[in-house]
Amino acid sequence: MRRTGSFDCPSDAARAVDPEDWRRLMPAAREAAGRLAAAGDVEVTQRGAVVDVATARGPVRIRRPSRN
């Protein structure tokens, strides 16, 4: 069960805003993920590897940054 306010991918956020027409919100959701990643607040991943959301094609996930 997903916690309120917690999203794994940009489409989760878009669906929370507009369940009927969420696809139109995807560019803005991915841009927001990119801004958060650039600020170091999140990491955007694809198949477990950190990627640049601006160049990634297909589904991506958002996670808290790993602290090494």
Rank of each mutant, 00 (worst) to 15 (best):
R2P: 08
G34M: 05
R35P: 01
P65Y: 01
A56R: 00
R30N: 15
D52V: 12
A13T: 02
L36A: 14
A13C: 11
R3T: 12
R3S: 15
R24E: 10
V17N: 05
E43D: 15
A39H: 08
A49Q: 15
R15K: 13
S66H: 14
D12L: 09
Q46I: 09
M26W: 01
M1C: 04
A38T: 09
R64T: 09
N68C: 13
G58F: 08
F7S: 11
E43N: 08
A13K: 02
R61W: 05
A29Q: 06
R61Q: 09
P10G: 06
A56V: 01
R57E: 13
R67Q: 14
M1K: 02
A37Y: 06
E31S: 12
T45E: 11
L36N: 02
V17T: 14
C9I: 00
M1T: 12
R67A: 13
T45W: 06
A33M: 15
V51P: 00
L25V: 00
D52Y: 04
E43R: 10
E20C: 07
A14P: 00
A56F: 00
D21L: 08
V53W: 02
D41A: 15
W22G: 02
R30G: 07
D8G: 13
E20P: 02
A49L: 14
T55L: 08
A56M: 01
A14L: 03
A56H: 00
R67E: 15
A33W: 05
V51Q: 08
V42L: 06
A28E: 02
G34L: 07
A33V: 14
D12Q: 12
A33I: 08
F7E: 11
M1P: 13
R15H: 09
G58Y: 08
V42I: 15
D52A: 13
D52C: 10
S11N: 06
S66Q: 15
R57H: 07
A14E: 00
S11E: 14
L36T: 04
R57L: 09
F7A: 10
R67K: 11
D21P: 01
R24F: 01
V60A: 03
R61Y: 05
R23E: 13
G34R: 01
R24V: 07
A13I: 00
P27L: 02
G34P: 05
T4C: 07
A29C: 11
P19E: 12
P19H: 13
G34D: 05
Q46A: 13
R35M: 09
T45Q: 11
A32H: 06
G48P: 04
G40T: 06
P10C: 04
R64F: 09
F7Y: 15
G40Y: 09
R30Q: 14
L25G: 03
D41E: 15
E20Q: 10
D21Y: 11
V60C: 03
R3C: 12
A39Y: 01
R57T: 10
C9V: 05
R23P: 00
R15M: 10
